[in-house]
Design a protein around this nucleic acid. Structure first.
Length: 560
RNA sequence: UGCCCUGUAGCACAAUGGUAGUGCACCGGACUUUGACUCCGGCUAUAUCAGUUCGAUUCUGAUCAGGGCAUCCA
């Protein structure tokens, strides 16, 4: 292989299908996908994956993606969810084709499709009760029985279906079914229900209808109406595909193609709508946007950048096997993105006071510190330095081991952007807690103009006691203590909540400039982690959420 | 015990009828005014058994394992 030869880009199986279609000139080279949420809940990490796959696939091949609300069941859907969904998708950075679409826009068309099927002798009105229908459906290993109403005349079916529509019958009295094959090994082909009667007000069509199409009769036809070329869905719809294709064939409509891929599962996260709801209702989290929630809203509030979520979805890949993505991959993507965009600041989470005994009392110096070494355009800021500072309690050891590159009696250590300190002494209270550390500084060791020749292995972050602002910090950790809380045999997932998923620190000191940080702003607390300003934060009471901690190989090595 | 889908390192995704590669994770090292970042190196895999073939991870069959399918949900 020559050096000039490029390595072949590896394609996932959907891309392979698309490229094959393209090479055959199918659909005139058009690629059109769709994201079809039900407007009955909040979008979560699993949706983010589906959104990313659909939008980016279309993008890659110069195509479009529709946003279609799959609102065929009036019982569960609400308009209020629609706005949230739109907002989340926009926040993720995707733009859908044209206006938001609704499956309910096609109710008229779908009704005509049903009539067409009836006229072709391929659909019939069934008067059986739900129990009878279930009974006649048989079992996977046992063929079903044909309904006694299956042989009704086309005229009678037409009449009955018309009367279903006009509201003559009670909920559940009758259904419209496709006439396919009651002995099919595929349960979905055993005369699936097309329409059911529901005298309910729909969030968009109001009381125009009292019959509503089922998923199988609405989804594929909606795809077809919209000219969707590649209709991506999750694996459990594999069995629906023959039906999807059956409708296309019998109705003679645009041949959208359904392609199934495995939904993404993420360790320590759950995505079941009902289970998430129990977390909210049970007060185990503060709401749908609790930073511990796997919802888009929660991740946004946690400080996960949209770019990182998309990158994570990309890296998780697309295939057909069941998967459990390690949360480390998500955290990697988040750190990777934040490393590029987050300004560095100093915050002391667990403070202990240091007095620099040879520094003039009452003096304040403003030291210029780079905002982000990774980004030359990020500029710098002035940070006040004075005789008394706070450092992290964990950055001092009374009797440190050799490899501890931090502060200890008789040792030198650099203060980030400031001077090198020499630790002289420390003060303990009766309980043995260190209350104060005494140091001297090398006045010629100022950052950037150090002529002291003094060596200091470690660098600490700090804030000036006099100038620091007090803040609240919310330390978030994974919501569950096991990777797959819903797969535990004898335990309810609520028993597996991580008791330490939130720890509130209320004795935190931050650089004075941070009181002006705006909600949503993302920062790196040097040597600690990435944080974002919470929406509840104010100048008087700044609140920061831990997005993800920095890697800490020292702490890791200490655990061994 | 019917049908369908899926088995490649700890996790995920590639590849090819002819050397199994990438990312994350992990381990080691370099660098470092963030024990971060970055850089360098290392680690471990084709479920099993047969068949076809000069050669199989790839094709075929069987076995095993995991998942899915019987809402008037989507």
């Amino acid at each position: 292989m020559s050096n000039l030869e490029e390595t072949k880009p590896s394609l996932n199986f959907i891309e392979q299908i698309i490229e094959e279609d393209l090479s055959q000139g199918k659909h005139a080279g058009r690629v059109h996908t769709r994201f079809p949420p039900e407007p009955n809940g909040f979008l979560h990490i699993g949706h983010a994956k589906a959104i990313t796959v659909n939008f980016e696939l279309a993008q890659k091949y110069g195509g479009l993606t529709n946003l279609r609300m799959d609102d065929t069941n009036p019982s569960t859907e609400k308009t209020s969810y629609v706005e949230n969904i739109k907002n989340d998708i926009k926040w993720l950075g995707f733009e859908w084709n044209g206006e938001v679409l609704y499956a309910s826009d096609y109710f008229g068309k779908l009704y005509e499709f049903a009539i067409k099927l009836i006229k072709a002798g391929l659909a019939y009105v069934d008067d059986s009760t739900p129990e009878e229908i279930a009974e006649m459906k048989g079992e996977p290993t046992v063929p079903g029985k044909e309904s006694p109403y299956r042989t009704r005349s086309i005229e009678e079916n037409l009449d009955l279906f018309q009367r279903m529509k006009t509201g003559e019958f009670e909920d559940g009295a009758r259904v419209l079914r496709a006439k396919v094959d009651m002995s099919s090994p595929n349960m979905h082909m055993r005369d699936p229900i097309l329409y059911r009667i529901k005298h309910e007000t729909h969030h968009r069509t109001g009381d125009d209808w009292c019959i509503y199409p089922m998923y199988d009769f609405a989804h594929g036809q909606s795809d077809s109406i919209e000219g969707i070329t590649h209709s991506l869905c999750s694996l459990e719809f594999r069995h629906h595909r023959p039906l999807y294709d059956w409708f296309i064939e019998k109705l003679e409509i645009f041949p959208s193609r359904q392609i199934e891929f495995a939904r993404m599962n993420v360790a320590y996260m759950i995505t079941s709508k009902r289970k998430l709801l129990r977390l909210v209702d049970g007060g185990h989290v503060t709401g749908w946007d609790d930073p511990r929630m796997p919802t888009i809203a929660g991740m946004r509030r946690r400080g996960y950048p949209a770019n990182a979520i998309r990158e994570f979805c990309r890296r998780a890949g697309v295939a057909k096997r069941d998967n459990l993505i390690e949360i480390e991959l998500l955290e990697y993507a988040v750190r990777n993105e934040l490393n590029k965009i987050a300004n560095r600041v100093m915050a002391v989470l667990d403070p202990v006071k240091v007095v620099i005994t040879n520094y003039p009392e009452g003096q304040t110096e403003y030291l210029s510190i780079d905002n982000n070494p990774e980004d030359p355009d990020a500029g710098s800021r002035e940070v006040p330095f004075s005789r008394e500072i706070y450092i992290e309690r964990g950055d001092f050891m009374e009797d440190p081991p050799r490899k501890f590159f931090r502060m200890g009696p008789g040792r030198n250590v650099r203060l980030k952007g400031a001077y090198i300190l020499h630790c002289e002494d420390f003060v303990k209270d009766d309980a043995g807690t260190i209350t104060e550390i005494h140091c001297t500084y090398y006045s010629d060791s100022k950052s950037g103009e150090d002529t002291s020749g003094v060596k200091a292995k470690g660098t600490l972050h700090w804030v000036s006691v006099e100038h620091a602002a007090k803040a609240e910090v919310r330390q978030y950790d994974r919501l569950f203590s096991v990777a797959e809380p819903t797969k535990e045999e004898d335990k309810d997932y609520l028993e597996l909540l991580n008791p330490n998923s939130l720890e509130i620190l209320d004795n935190v000191y931050v650089e004075p400039g941070l009181v002006n940080a705006k909600p949503g702003e993302q920062l790196q607390f040097m040597r600690k982690g990435y944080y974002c300003v919470d929406q509840e934060s104010t100048a008087e009471h700044p609140v920061f959420n831990l997005t993800v901690s920095l890697k800490d190989s020292w702490a890791k090595s200490q655990k061994k």
